[in-house]
Design a protein around this nucleic acid. Structure first.
Length: 422
RNA sequence: GGAGAGAUGGCAGAGCGGUUUAAUGCGGCGGUCUUGAAAACCGUUGAAGCGCGAGUUUCCGGGGGUUCGAAUCCCUCUCUCUCCGCCA
């Protein structure tokens, strides 16, 4: 959520930003609603003040006549206040509805453009293999080596589910172990997180739990949703908390299952593991002081790059365009891995600086040395989105004889250096 | 799942219809003392909104109600603790 005071003082900037981000908002309506709401509030305050004065008079000894008169006055205040408060609540609801649509402001270095095509490629890292045979895609490899079972998953759970099997299963465990260990070395605290979270937390992080465009599964008859990412549960961890300055930065790495409805994604090129309803993911989450978040984003991006260099997957780094940032992000980097099966790059990690957009609604602040309470900045980044890393490994590390080399860094976790046909 | 107890400022913890503008302690901040620090002592210290300010309103787990007036009474939900049951 963007600070209403900021919107009031920078209406033109907010309008321009929404255009850059390809988001439709009505700033003028927001300002009108805000003014109306404040006026209703002032009116209610005045009435409450009179009511309080009235009830204060009744503390002293009074004649029955005087008391009765004051009680009657009090009743009138009571009715007037209730009318005024109703109006105030209505305006506040309307205001919040509009306010929730307002995207975060955008970093000055972020490329301006409406779609992902406008993202800026910063660099390519790693050598793309020139196969002297026709490389298979991961679906074929998974079938040949008995690593992934889509057919039976679709019987048990439906389309876009899968079983990981044999070394496919081991790869998830290996990547998880490797990722967590790596992040511990970088000073992160490891977490295994709940896979369900409350609506209020989802909304605080910037997800829309219900509605047509939601990508989130909600649980019937509860206010719970299956999380789409551990960003939700890690970010929600400090909901309504006041932190001390020396607590910061808080660096967490969490494992969770991620559930996504992927409604409307049917037509896209989504073969195999690339776009699925459930997957496992290792996610970084950082809470820090506002002045540190720019550097922290580079820190997170560096960790991601280090990991894919270490595994040995060629990738490119994108500075994501304004129109493709999503509402909470102020700046975002994507890593896209080379996937021979697609003959193209595919998104493998994403790291965002969400500044105080999330902390404002989650009410997470820290007390600085002057004793002022300041909204923290919050950042998140992917370490390992398991299925997409498995795609990248299977497709990039395949041999002509149909075997797969295990990336060196993962051999200790799997206990062999090659996947062969059994 | 059953029974009981509880949820109060950064933390701990009193208050249980109208001098509560929420006691007290810890922690934080400032000071005295000290070469410096600790201890001790003194002072200060919740959040949010509106207002230039004086000030004022709201907030005692969430929501609703009773009342002229609610942290305090009632209903309801959530969570925590204790005991019992069930269970990987």
């Amino acid at each position: 959520m963007v600070d209403i005071k900021y919107i009031k003082e920078n209406a033109d900037l907010v309008k321009k930003n929404a255009v850059d981000r390809n988001v439709k908002i009505d700033v003028d309506k927001i300002l009108v609603l805000y003014e109306k709401k404040v006026n209703a509030q002032i009116k209610a305050d005045g009435l409450r003040q009179k009511r309080n004065e009235n009830s204060l008079k009744m503390k002293s000894q009074l004649s029955p006549g005087e008391r009765l008169k004051l009680v009657e006055e009090g009743k009138e205040f009571k009715n007037a206040i209730s009318v005024c408060e109703e109006e105030e609540r209505k305006l506040e609801r309307e205001l919040n509805e509009e306010l929730n649509k307002v995207p975060n402001m955008t970093h000055e270095t972020t490329p301006i453009g409406k779609t992902d095509k406008d993202s800026k490629e910063l660099r390519k890292v790693g050598k793309i293999r020139n196969f002297n045979f026709k490389p298979k895609d991961h679906v074929e490899i998974g079938q040949d080596l008995d690593l992934i079972d889509f057919d039976n998953a679709s019987i048990v759970s439906g389309q876009k589910f899968y079983y990981l099997k044999n070394e496919g299963a081991l790869l998830e465990l290996a990547l998880t172990q490797y990722g967590i260990k790596k992040l511990i070395e970088k000073g992160f605290t490891p977490y295994l997180t709940p896979d369900l979270a409350k609506n209020t937390i989802l909304e605080g992080i910037g997800f829309n739990p219900r509605g047509d465009e939601t990508n989130i599964y909600s649980i019937e008859n509860t206010d719970l949703c299956l999380v789409g990412t551990a960003e939700i549960t890690l970010g929600g961890l400090y909901y309504n908390k006041l932190l001390k300055e020396e607590d910061l930065p808080i660096k967490m790495v969490g494992f969770s299952h991620c559930f996504r409805t992927e409604a409307g994604a049917a037509g896209q090129a989504t073969k195999g593991l690339y776009r699925v309803h459930q997957f496992s993911k290792i996610e970084m989450f950082v809470i820090c002081k506002p002045e540190d978040s720019d550097d922290m984003l580079e820190f997170l991006r560096n960790i991601e790059e280090e990991i894919y260099q270490e595994i040995g997957i060629p990738y490119r780094v994108l500075d994501v365009a304004s129109g493709d940032l999503g509402n909470p992000a102020y700046k975002k980097y994507d890593l896209e891995a080379w996937m021979p099966g697609r003959n193209d790059y595919g998104e493998i990690t994403s790291t965002s600086n969400c500044t105080d957009f999330q902390s404002r609604r989650l009410n997470i602040k820290y007390k600085n040395t002057e004793g002022k309470n300041i909204f923290v900045h919050m950042l998140n980044g992917t370490v390992i989105a398991v299925p997409r890393v498995i795609i990248s490994i299977l497709e990039n590390f395949q041999n002509e004889d149909g075997t797969i080399d295990i990336p060196k860094i993962l051999i200790p976790y799997i206990g062999k250096d090659k996947i062969t046909k059994r």
